[in-house]
Design a binder for these strands. Sequence first.
RNA 1: GCGCUUGUAGCUCAAUUGGAUAGAGCAACGGACUUCGGAUCCGUAGGUUGAGGGUUCGAAUCCUUCCAGGCGCGCCA
Length: 573
Amino acid sequence: MKKQLISLIHQRLKELFTSYGIEDYGFIDVQVPPDKTNGDFSLNAAMKLAKAAKCAPQKLAAEMVARLETEKDWFSKVEMAGPGFINLYLADRVIENSFNELAARTVIVEQAPAGGEKTVVDYSSVNIAKQMHVGHLRSTIIGDVLARVIEELGNPVVRQNHLGDWGLPMAMVIWKAEPEIAAIEKRGVDLTSELTLARLEELYKSASAECKENPAAATACHDYLVQLQQGDKALLDLWHKIIRISMAEVYRIYRLLDVKLFEENERGESFYRDMLADTVAELGKSGKLVESQGAQCVFLEEFKGKDGSPLPVIVQKSDGGFNYGTFDLAGLRYRTATLGAQRIVYVTDARQALHFKQIFAVARAAGILAVPDVKPLKTRSGENVKLADLLSEAVERAYQVVNEKNPGLSEEQKQQVARTVGIGAVKYADLSQNRNNDYVFSFDRMLALNGNTAPYLQYAHARICSIFRRAGLNIDEFAAAAVISQREERDLMVKLMEFSAAVSAVAAELRPHILCNYLYELAVCFSAFYDKCPVLSCEDEKIKASRLMISSFTRRTLAKGLELLGISAPREM
RNA sequence: GCGCUUGUAGCUCAAUUGGAUAGAGCAACGGACUUCGGAUCCGUAGGUUGAGGGUUCGAAUCCUUCCAGGCGCGCCA
């Protein structure tokens, strides 16, 4: 509808613009005014073109209004306002037709042209032998939503979990865990049920502490690392076991969160181990490689260190080993050359922003083609809160609310609802915020169930389902023509038609909170409709059917939006 | 020292990327018809957008100088 509207405007105003000597008006767009009373769409073109046209904005606007007013099929009113805004009020018929056309479709988001862009989304990126804490929530959840949204728009998506599984910390864990694993296996019991991730983390911490105090321990760990990286079979075996124990717990949390990461998405540092030498050799060929204090580096003028001298990106350490930059370069090469990515989205901690800037700059300098897109995220305090604890607390609190609000549900239903509501609340709390500033972690904020929260959206969804349940109608198969008889119906229909744009904006700007905001506004519109427009008791059959249709499409849109946020929408709660 | 980032209502956040009278939620207070779920709805109150200067028809947004917080800066990832 918006597209057609814009092309209509261009067409109708072309002559006027050329008479003022303006040829370049293709950028003219309509926007939705913040205040509903200023029309369905507004144009600020008169103010933008005034200078080029050598004409007062209000005069130009008045002439534009005169030409648009004649489109009676489209507009019920066209007016000039303020310094030269033009407010467009669409005819109800236009809204009805576009709405009915949209509601009849099976796919309600506009698809990317030509099969879309192949996109790699790098997110979560957990470290082996470390429990997930609340700080991991953002990368994991935001990455998951971005992947879903980009995919929904018709782009092929490859998800990558860049595990930290090939550095010194791994060697330290192996070194400490080796005797424990041997003991457990000697007893003949199942390793994974005996050795937990929490225990592995303890082992890592004690090894780390020991290495700091005791040089012999540090040497031992370093030896283990070298042997591991050289392919020592016994160590590789232990390494593999530790990864599986660690990831088993991570997957338990992914499943709880409904995050779409699986073993097939694991592309940890170890995955690139055989590509590192090649990557460095390629840099050598490009002539960018410089030896400095025994290490192989790339120096880039745009990055300065503490003393103002250029900062190196170290790609090979003086002992011949590779460090994290090399893994990321190899990853970049793999993703572009092998996977054929046209777009790569990195969802990482903001503290790594400089690191990735450097990596991308090195890749560009060396001619590794890429379209990198870093989404940096800010640090947060409260990292000591374990994600698993937060989630179980969320489910527990939600259970108490369900138990109180809807005691009629079966025990099993209550638990199911508690899960979707509790987990949904936590995810939404994180997703709905955009700003990268630091904040103090708060249970109460993360677990709120009132106001602008996931349960509010879920509640709207459940209420719609309830209407159809009462009417004995199948909500998924219902179809009727929508007509406008009241303002709230119109507002809701207009809002529903903005869904696709909201989804596209998330993919373009990599900001999931846009979708949260949209869905909240949608639910607010629905609540107003629900309050003012009785459905089942409506006596006019045509209007009743229309309201059922509007309700059913609202449900569909809410459910799709929540699905893209990775939050499920129960039919009863 | 250099670089990145943030500062909006008591608190947590928005603001269609330069547009109209800066909007929500929470907390507070006051209301909601014998109709579909009160996890809801409506209303009241709350602001010099950290401060100053600049750019222009128009600034929370861009430039500049300060102030305050957070983060990063050679072989850890």
